[in-house]
Simulated assay, not measured.
Amino acid sequence: MDLPRPLPEPLVELIAQRFRVIGEPMRIKLLDRLRDSSATVGELVEALDASQQNVSKHLGVLHRAGIVSRAKAGTSVRYAIADDTVFALCEQVCGGLRDQLAELDSILSGGVA
């Protein structure tokens, strides 16, 4: 999809909002864990060694942004990835970081970048 140039202001705001939502370490950890399978808050608390309050707060932000979904499962709620396009962005960022690290390694090893 080709984006309009220059980006319209409302689109700029939406893009910035998405980056703010996923630009928090705990939220990235939650998304990484949910990538494998859905989970309850309790399961996420245990997997991430985090407080229930912290996990719930971040899941709420991710849910309001439409990145995760929640579904009642008996007496608990299971969270799952609702928008897996977020992982494409993570892959792009990781690829960029990998390239930067390789360049830095080359420089430190005495090579020319």
Score class of each variant (00 low, 15 high):
Val61Phe: 04
Gly74Thr: 01
Ser38Arg: 06
Leu97Asn: 01
Gly95Lys: 14
Leu97Thr: 03
Val45Asp: 10
Leu101Trp: 06
Lys72Ala: 09
Ala71Glu: 07
Glu9Arg: 11
Leu31Cys: 02
Ile107Leu: 15
Arg27Gln: 13
Leu89Ile: 06
Ala39Arg: 03
Ala39Asn: 02
Val45Lys: 09
Thr75Gln: 11
Leu11Lys: 06
Ser51Gly: 08
Asn54Cys: 04
Val112Lys: 01
Asn54Glu: 12
Val112Trp: 02
Met1Tyr: 11
Thr40Ala: 05
Gly110Arg: 08
Ile22Gln: 14
Leu3Ile: 00
Ser109Lys: 13
Gly23Leu: 09
Gly60Asn: 02
Phe19Lys: 10
Glu103Phe: 06
Leu108Trp: 07
Glu103Ser: 07
Lys57Met: 00
Ser106Thr: 12
Val93Ile: 15
Leu89Arg: 02
Thr40Met: 04
Ser51Lys: 02
Arg27Tyr: 11
Val112His: 00
Gly66Met: 06
Asp99Arg: 07
Asp36Gly: 02
Gly111Thr: 04
Ile67Gly: 10
Glu24Ile: 13
Leu97His: 05
Val12Gln: 01
Val45Ile: 12
Ser51Asn: 02
Ile107Met: 12
Asp105Asn: 05
Phe19His: 13
Glu13Asn: 06
Leu104Glu: 14
Leu31Asp: 05
Glu46Trp: 14
Ala82Val: 08
Val61Asn: 00
Gly74Leu: 00
Leu11Tyr: 05
Lys57Tyr: 02
Ser109Trp: 09
Ser37Ala: 14
Leu3Phe: 09
Val41Gly: 08
Ser37Asp: 13
Ala102Asn: 02
Phe87Val: 12
Arg18Cys: 02
Gly74Ala: 00
Pro4His: 02
Glu91Pro: 12
Gln92Pro: 01
Gly74Val: 05
Pro10His: 10
Leu31Pro: 10
Val61Thr: 01
Leu11Trp: 07
Ser38His: 07
Ile107Lys: 10
Cys94Leu: 11
Pro6Phe: 00
His63Asp: 03
Gln92Thr: 10
Ala47Cys: 04
Arg64His: 08
